[in-house]
Design a protein around this nucleic acid. Structure first.
Length: 263
DNA sequence: AACCGGCACAACCGCGACCGC
DNA sequence: CGCGGTCGCGGTTGTGCCGGT
């Protein structure tokens, strides 16, 4: 259905992302926002396809990600939501701030499934395992049909418009309830006195803009003495690494992460 | 020290939904 | 209304790390 043939991928890079690619992608999105993933790699100077960029941003580069291990409370919440929603990881992830669907999905498959089995619960049905019966198709109960399920429960909230990622999704991610705590915590950690969050949303009513993000970003940069973002603005050139020296130390990038972590 | 298996997680793939023309 | 393009989601795979032998 409208898919481009795989051969179009020829010439595009695959596999793990390099630091420079991360820099370019993050810098581009912070400066320009996201309007069409297909053109993002072209404009950002990346030999990736848009889908790969989107995934990288959502699962790894997004500034608000927690990246820590899951707490017991979070695991319990995941189990609870999974019992209601099944394998709809994006829906489950929407109940958590700073967690991605991929992250939750991985955690479910590697940890929580085992934990539930240890507790004598069937991960698929969330019911006590009956050893005397044949194992049913694990996907049957965990994959309720997407279209007809929206009336099932109040928890299922599918009203999020997907028009403009930078204005809606990012804003929601950055300022969703518990993230304020995260912001405060990280501000404290980095010694940033205050961030004028309101100014982020002032310019165009309810819209967060790339320029306001950059502004916030530069404020943060000034507050961090060891920052690599001493300039007031971010430009693509800023991230042009010296390609003759491909060995960028991880410490260098770690600072980059720290600075963006609490955006 | 070398090998191996398990684990965690990043990344890819394919499909369906959605949207504009 | 049909078609083509794009996006988002869920399943799966690939790969690096780590602990045990």
């Amino acid at each position: 259905m409208g898919r481009k043939p795989c051969c179009e991928k020829i010439g595009l890079k695959r596999g793990p992302w390099t630091i420079e690619e991360d820099h370019r992608l993050m810098n581009f999105i912070l400066n320009n926002g996201i309007h069409c993933w297909r053109i993002v790699p072209k404009l950002a100077g990346l030999l990736r396809w848009g889908k790969s960029c989107r995934l990288r941003w959502i699962n790894y580069l997004r500034p608000d990600l927690k990246r820590g291990g899951f707490t017991d409370a979070e695991e319990d919440r995941i189990m609870e939501l999974h019992s209601q929603l099944g394998n709809r990881w994006s829906k489950i992830a929407s109940h958590f701030s700073g967690r991605t669907d991929n992250e939750i999905k991985n955690h479910w498959n590697t940890k929580i499934k085992k934990k539930m089995k240890h507790l004598g619960l069937d991960p698929a049905t969330h019911k006590p395992i009956d050893n005397t019966t044949h194992h049913t198709d694990p996907n049957q109960d965990t994959k309720p049909k997407m279209c007809s399920s929206t009336n099932e429960g109040e928890e299922i909230n599918d009203q999020t418009p997907k028009d403009d990622v930078i204005t809606e999704t990012t804003k929601a991610l950055i300022l969703s309830g518990s993230d304020e705590e995260l912001l405060a915590k990280n501000c404290k950690t980095l010694g940033v006195e205050e961030i004028d969050l309101e100014s982020l949303f002032e310019p165009q009513g309810n819209e967060i803009t790339s320029s306001s993000l950059s502004s916030l970003y530069s404020n943060i940069s000034r507050s961090e003495s060891s920052s690599h973002f001493a300039e007031d603005s971010i430009s693509l050139d800023q991230w042009d690494l010296d390609m003759t020296d491909p060995f960028v130390p991880w410490d260098h990038f770690a600072n980059f992460d720290d600075n963006l972590f609490f955006l």
